[in-house]
């Protein structure tokens, strides 16, 4: 039972393509890795499994625990610079998928021992009739999450002119010459907060946590106010 739906508990064989379109039972799109050597009592029939959440000692716990340990190691290393006395094994990181995005990068760090089901799943393309209708659409996430800063219009409705992209960009530039520039500058300097559009932000919690200074006020034009630590005044 290498993978299990975190929502309903349904198990999937290693390399199963069923998971790629979400859990057929509940539609869940989060799966935890469950190494076979840690589970001697595999149930070959997933439908016979009760949907109860697994016991605390199960791999759900270990998965999140190992993800938390990864964060802890990252923080510990970046915060103190001290060497980590208990470095995690390299196998643990790819074994802790916590979100749908983790399914989209199977090429990274291919394991040396790959069984036929895994290589099959990796090499073959799922045919359209294998994908349940109404399931998760991989383009939903990727399209929604990548608005282009260059298409921003500070005037809101000024892009109705049909004279081409360059024209509208120039118009925007005349009104607020450095708006896009300022926003890009903010994005470059503060990876901790990304201004996608006015009122739409992406936050990098690790960066926010790691910075000694912190952003106390944002403005829509890309300006910001930060507070610096008192030690900087010396």
């Amino acid at each position: 039972m290498p993978h299990q739906c975190t929502n309903c508990g349904r198990a999937f064989a290693d390399g199963s393509k069923e998971m790629l379109s979400g859990c057929p039972d509940c539609g869940g799109n989060k799966f935890q890795f469950h190494p076979s050597e840690t589970d001697a009592s595999d149930d070959p029939d997933p439908s016979a499994e009760p949907p109860d959440p697994p016991a605390p000692e199960s791999s759900v716990a270990r998965t999140v625990g190992s993800a938390a340990a990864t964060v802890r190691n990252l923080v510990g290393n970046s915060g103190t610079g001290a060497p980590d006395p208990d470095p995690q094994t390299p196998e643990e990181t790819p074994a802790a998928p916590t979100g749908p995005e983790s399914r989209s990068a199977p090429e990274a760090n291919l394991p040396s021992t790959e069984d036929t089901a895994q290589s099959n799943a990796r090499s073959e393309v799922v045919s359209p009739d294998e994908i349940p209708t109404g399931g998760w659409n991989p383009t939903d996430d990727t399209d929604a999450g990548s608005p282009d800063a260059a298409t921003l219009s500070p005037n809101g409705s000024s892009t109705e002119t049909d004279t081409g992209e360059e024209r509208s960009a120039e118009d925007a530039g005349e009104d607020r010459p450095d708006l896009t520039e300022l926003r890009e500058e903010l994005n470059d300097q503060f990876e901790s907060i990304k201004v996608l559009n006015p009122g739409q932000y992406e936050l990098n919690l690790m960066e926010l946590y790691d910075r000694e200074e912190y952003i106390i006020a944002l403005q829509e034009d890309g300006r910001y106010t930060i507070q610096v630590p008192e030690t900087w005044h010396e």
């Binding site: 975190t6 989060k30 999140v64 993800a67 938390a68 802890r72 923080v75 916590t98 919690l205 946590y209």
Partner: peptide, 13 residues
């Protein structure tokens, strides 16, 4: 669902 990036990251920190 508690299995989120935010929860994992915050509890880790």
């Amino acid at each position: 669902d508690p299995f989120t990036q935010v929860n994992t990251m915050l509890v880790g920190i």
